[in-house]
């Protein structure tokens, strides 16, 4: 069914969506920032530097989630030759990359006052850097091979390579001794983060997800316009 979808119909929806998403993003971000920077308490040990976490953790989550979605869409798209899935993957990548850089930079800023160093070559931090590099390679691949079958093949392989790194990032803190602390939020067991700090974290995650969606829609619209300009009525 996706093979024969009409870019014009999709475009009429996606071209109108960004302004609403932007509005929602601004609202949620304002609430999130107020919660994170003003209303939430300081930490008993690290005092105010805990506030960096409200940017760091959501950014890391979003960039990992985005890469997983990109991989899933690429592999399904490659197997069943669904071109639209590749357009979606391609449009998702820039915001994922931005968030991976944000996670690395905020982590570094947090590390200096807490650990006493800007950077450590521990498993978590290094694997996160590798993910950022995979985003770069992925984006470059799209630049080199412009929207043809070769691009689909190459980017699918890149996502396969990159997705192996995702569980390594997640479990690096459990498998090996790392400077980075283990996860505080567990779905199955009790979280070791106080509820008053969990709320701003989740709101900020929602805000970042909306930002990702916004960038995605803008990028996706550009792709659709490109296809329309080529005079194709379907993908």
């Amino acid at each position: 069914m996706f093979k024969y979808f009409e870019p014009n119909k999709i475009f009429s929806i996606t071209s109108r969506a960004p302004k609403y998403v932007l509005l929602l993003f601004i609202i949620i971000l304002s609430i999130g920032l107020t919660e994170a920077l003003i209303l939430s308490p300081e930490d008993y040990k690290q005092s105010h530097s805990v506030r960096i976490m409200y940017v760091h953790v959501p950014a890391a989550w979003i960039c990992l989630g985005t890469f997983s979605v990109i991989t899933f869409l690429s592999l399904v798209g490659y197997t069943f030759k669904i071109r639209n899935f590749f357009l979606i993957s391609k449009s998702l990548a820039p915001s994922g990359f931005v968030f991976s850089v944000i996670a690395l930079v905020t982590g570094s800023i947090w590390g200096k006052p807490t650990w006493g160093t800007w950077w450590a070559w521990d498993a978590r931090i290094t694997s996160m850097l590798i993910l950022a590099l995979f985003y770069i390679i992925y984006l470059i691949a799209w630049r080199i091979y412009d929207n043809d079958d070769k691009a689909f093949k190459v980017t699918s392989i890149i996502t396969i390579l990159g997705i192996i790194n995702v569980p390594i990032i997640k479990y690096s803190v459990d498998w090996w001794n790392t400077l980075h602390q283990p996860a505080s939020i567990n779905i199955l067991s009790k979280s070791s983060i106080h509820i008053s700090m969990l709320y701003p974290l989740l709101i900020m995650t929602a805000a970042f997800a909306l930002f990702s969606l916004l960038i995605f829609l803008m990028k996706y619209n550009t792709e659709l316009i490109k296809i329309k300009n080529k005079g194709l009525d379907r993908l």
Binding site: D43, Y44, Q46, V50, T114, W115, G116, T117, L179, S184
Partner: peptide, 17 residues
């Protein structure tokens, strides 16, 4: 020659602590 503090996974306000 160098010391790094390791932070644990517990986050809570001072009052709770």
């Amino acid at each position: 020659t160098k010391i790094l503090a390791k932070h644990d996974e517990n986050y809570m306000p001072p009052e709770i602590k």
